[in-house]
C-alpha cells in the first residue's frame, strides 16, 4: 500500500476477501493448523504443492492430486495449502465444493462409480445402482461402515457402448447385469480381507 496516497476511505478493507480470516505470522500459522492424521501426510502434501508451485492456476491440479492420494480432502491439507498458496481457505473450500470429483469427508478404500449417463440409463443402470445400494446397505454418496466401499454415481465413464457400466477403483466393468454386481463386490471384499 502506498501510504502517501491513501486517503483512509476504507473501501479496500471492505472489499478485502480475507478480512474475516484470522491472520497469523507464518511461524504461528503452521502451529495453528489442524494436525494431520499421520506425520508422513504433511510431507506428501508438501511434495504435491511443490510439484505445481510455479504454475499459474495450480489450485485444481493440486486439489486433484491430494484428493486422489487421500481419496478425500482432509482439512489439515487444505489449511496447509491455503497457507502455502496464500489463498484464503474459504476460496479453496468454494472450489473444492463446486467440483464433483472432490470429497470433503473420508471415503472408502474402494470407490465404486456407477454410471448413470444416458447410455447406461436407457440400458438399465438404475437397477444396477439399486442392487449395489441393497448389497452394500448404503445409499449412493455414502460409505460402508467398514470404510471398504464408497458408492458414487457418475455421468458417463465413456463406456457407453458396453452399457451399463461401472468402475471400482481403476477397474472398469461393462455389460453389467444386476446379478453380476454382487460377485464383483465380493471379489473386492475377499482381497481386502487377505
Amino acid at each position: 500500500m502506498d501510504k502517501d496516497k491513501c486517503t483512509g476511505c476504507g473501501v479496500c478493507a471492505e472489499a478485502c476477501p480475507i478480512r474475516y480470516e484470522v491472520q497469523l505470522p507464518p511461524e504461528e500459522e503452521a502451529k495453528a493448523r489442524s494436525a494431520y492424521a499421520q506425520a508422513t501426510d504433511e510431507a506428501v502434501v508438501a511434495e504435491i504443492i511443490d510439484l505445481y508451485r510455479d504454475e499459474p492456476g495450480n489450485l485444481l491440479p493440486i486439489l486433484l492430486d491430494i484428493n486422489s492420494h487421500f481419496r478425500w480432502l482432509p482439512r489439515p491439507a487444505l489449511e496447509h495449502l491455503s497457507q502455502e498458496l496464500q489463498t484464503p481457505l474459504s476460496e479453496i473450500l468454494r472450489v473444492a465444493s463446486f467440483y464433483n470429483a472432490f470429497s470433503l469427508v473420508p471415503r472408502g478404500q474402494h470407490i465404486i462409480n456407477v454410471c448413470l449417463g444416458t447410455g447406461c440409463f436407457v440400458k438399465g443402470s438404475p437397477r444396477i445402482l439399486a442392487e449395489l445400494e441393497r448389497k452394500l446397505g448404503v445409499k449412493h454418496g455414502e460409505t460402508t461402515e467398514d470404510m471398504l466401499f464408497t458408492l458414487e454415481v457418475v455421468r458417463c465413464i465413456g463406456c457407453c457402448a458396453l452399457a451399463p457400466a461401472m468402475r471400482v477403483g481403476d477397474d472398469t466393468f461393462g455389460r453389467l447385469t444386476p446379478g453380476q454386481v454382487g460377485k464383483i463386490i465380493d471379489s473386492y471384499t475377499k482381497t481386502a480381507n487377505l
Binding site: N58, L59, L60, F98, Y99, N100, R155
Partner: peptide, 25 residues
Amino acid sequence: IRKGAGAFVCGEETSLIASIEGKVG
C-alpha cells in the same frame, strides 16, 4: 494437460477457461 474435476458446465468454453485458471468453473 489440465484435468477436469467432474463438472459438466466446465465443457462450456468460458467455464473451462475459469477452471484452467484454478477457479470455480
